[in-house]
Simulated scan of single mutants.
Amino acid sequence: MKEPCVYVLASQPYGTLYIGVTSNLIGRLMQHRSGTVPGFTAQYGVHRLVRFEPCETMEQAITREKRLKRWHRQWKINLIQSENPHWIDLAVGLGLPPLVSIVRHDGC
């Protein structure tokens, strides 16, 4: 079933943000998390789903995505915090497993 939506990923609370559009949110999140699609989210570790908006049509989703991408960073943060003030990974509520924190052993 196709369900167009706009989604926002974050690397961590107040971290790097990514805005995307898809008709299969769960499938797209799995791609982001597995790193199978090279690009921005894989390079910067942006995997936490912090907001998503279902849309009636893919055209509406694309229009909304383009609008959000033009917003100032603080406006995006305010939008996320208005519904998800603790920056919880919403993908868990959609049935995906929690993200695994990577512990580095080089002191960073």
Rank of each mutant, 00 (worst) to 15 (best):
R48G: 01
G20P: 08
T63I: 00
G107C: 05
Y14F: 11
H32S: 13
M1E: 04
R67T: 13
E59R: 15
W75D: 07
L49H: 05
E3P: 01
G107I: 04
G39E: 04
S23D: 09
G35W: 00
L79F: 14
T57W: 00
R48A: 14
Q74C: 08
G93H: 09
R51N: 10
Q43V: 06
G15P: 07
P38V: 05
V46H: 02
R70G: 06
I26L: 13
E65T: 05
F40W: 10
V100L: 15
R51G: 01
H105F: 13
R64K: 14
R104F: 05
F52G: 02
V6P: 00
G35S: 08
T63G: 01
S82L: 07
E65V: 01
D89R: 13
Y14T: 10
I102H: 03
W71P: 00
S11G: 10
L49D: 03
V46C: 07
V46E: 02
P97V: 07
T22S: 12
G35C: 08
R70S: 10
S34N: 11
T22K: 12
M58W: 01
S34A: 12
L49N: 05
M1P: 03
Y7Q: 04
A61E: 01
P85R: 06
A61I: 00
S82E: 12
V100K: 15
L9I: 14
H72I: 06
S11E: 11
P98V: 05
L96G: 09
I102D: 01
Y44Q: 10
K2W: 00
A10C: 13
I19V: 15
H105S: 05
L68T: 00
P13L: 07
Q31V: 10
Q81R: 11
L9G: 03
P97M: 09
S101W: 02
R48S: 14
E3V: 08
I62Q: 04
E53H: 15
K76M: 11
L68V: 02
N78E: 10
T41L: 06
I80D: 09
P4G: 03
L94F: 13
R70K: 15
A61H: 01
T57L: 12
R64N: 06
P13H: 09
H105T: 04
L49A: 15
F52C: 06
D106N: 14
S82N: 07
G35N: 08
W71I: 01
T63V: 03
D89P: 05
I77K: 11
I19R: 08
G15N: 11
N84R: 09
H32G: 11
L99S: 02
Q74P: 11
A10K: 02
N84K: 06
V37M: 09
S23N: 10
N84H: 08
F52E: 02
Q12F: 15
R48T: 14
D106Q: 09
M58Q: 12
P54I: 03
T41M: 07
P54R: 15
K76W: 04
S23G: 14
N24W: 03
T36S: 09
K76P: 03
N24Y: 08
L25P: 06
W87P: 15
G39C: 06
K69C: 03
M30Q: 14
G45V: 01
V100M: 12
T16H: 13
G39K: 08
E3M: 14
K66C: 01
G35M: 07
G35V: 07
V50K: 03
I102S: 01
G15K: 06
E83M: 10
L68C: 03
G95E: 14
I80H: 07
A91P: 02
E83H: 08
T41V: 06
H86C: 13
E3L: 12
E3G: 06
